[in-house]
Design a protein around this nucleic acid. Structure first.
Length: 261
DNA sequence: CGATTTTGACCGGCGC
DNA sequence: GCGCCGGTCAAAATCG
């Protein structure tokens, strides 16, 4: 049953996107990072969190974000106009407007809806989701030149899981306004992400990371990850995702990168 | 006072 | 052609 949510999630993008890369990884979460910052590097301790926060009846106000594991699903964009050959076959001549918009969906176990990814977002809409009791929120990057959009919704069955879908790429660096968070961010975000276009092989590392991680924390991630597994074969085809897409987008779950070895 | 959230209306695409 | 649905806009409200 949980399939539906995934289906729904990707459904929209599925037909349009030619190449789909699904990577899911379970990583240590931000909470770990917090710990690190605090003083010690506790990466493994993350496991304990799962139970505690999940059971907690707390709402969300607290700024304590406990993200557990993240399953990441990456959907690549279409080539543009000619992409959809089969489907409707609707030829949009002037389709130039919408060029490539990469979509990346992250499943994160968190109590808070809006995960701090280092960018500034302005909410521009909210709608109820058909199969879900929880609303979906639409955000847009506040930087003017940056048309990146973000969509956040909760799993209809597991309120503790938040699905964040990024659309597009940031043209700018992360605002330095984070200050307090920045400290956290700094720990979170590796320098590489600050760089405009470093990791060309970014995608490459992905799968690897994930795989290795997967073995590790499936316990916690079991919930989220499992779902994904069932529905999609996460076979990383290694198609050839446009490297460009991910790198910028990735910053969010940067925890991926930074996980200490 | 400016930036951001809230919320209903509006719009385009799609299925019937 | 109509209605549903997902996504976006825009005005009012709210926050800092």
């Amino acid at each position: 049953m949980s399939d539906e949510m995934f289906k729904d999630l990707f459904y929209s993008g599925m037909d349009e996107y030619e190449s789909i890369v699904r990577a899911f990884g379970i990583t240590s979460d931000y909470s770990n990072i917090n710990n690190e910052i605090s003083g010690t590097t506790a990466m493994n301790s993350s496991c304990s969190l799962s139970s505690s926060d999940a059971g907690g009846g707390e709402e969300d106000d607290s700024v304590k974000e406990k993200e557990k594991q993240i399953s990441k699903d990456v959907v690549e964009d279409n080539g543009g106009e000619s992409s959809k050959a089969a489907g409707s076959g609707k030829s949009k001549k002037k389709g130039e407007k919408k060029e490539r918009e990469a979509r990346v969906a992250f499943m994160t176990k968190s109590e808070v809806d809006h995960l701090e990814d280092g960018y500034r977002w302005r909410k521009y809409g909210q709608k109820a989701v058909k199969n879900s009791a929880y609303p979906r929120s639409y955000y847009r990057c506040t930087t003017q030149k940056c048309g990146v959009k973000k969509r956040v919704e909760r799993s209809y069955e597991d309120p503790s899981i938040v699905i964040t879908t990024y659309e597009g790429q940031h043209n700018h660096l992360i605002p330095a306004t984070l200050r307090g968070n920045l400290s956290a961010a700094s720990g979170t975000f590796s320098p590489s992400m600050l760089t405009p276009m470093p990791v060309v092989g970014g995608v490459g590392f992905l799968p690897a990371e994930l795989l290795s991680n997967a073995g590790n924390n499936q316990a916690v991630g079991g919930g989220a990850t499992v779902y994904s597994h069932n529905n999609f074969d996460y076979t990383y085809n290694g198609r050839q995702p446009e490297y460009g897409l991910l790198q910028d987008i990735f910053p969010a779950p940067s925890s991926f990168f930074n996980r200490q070895p």
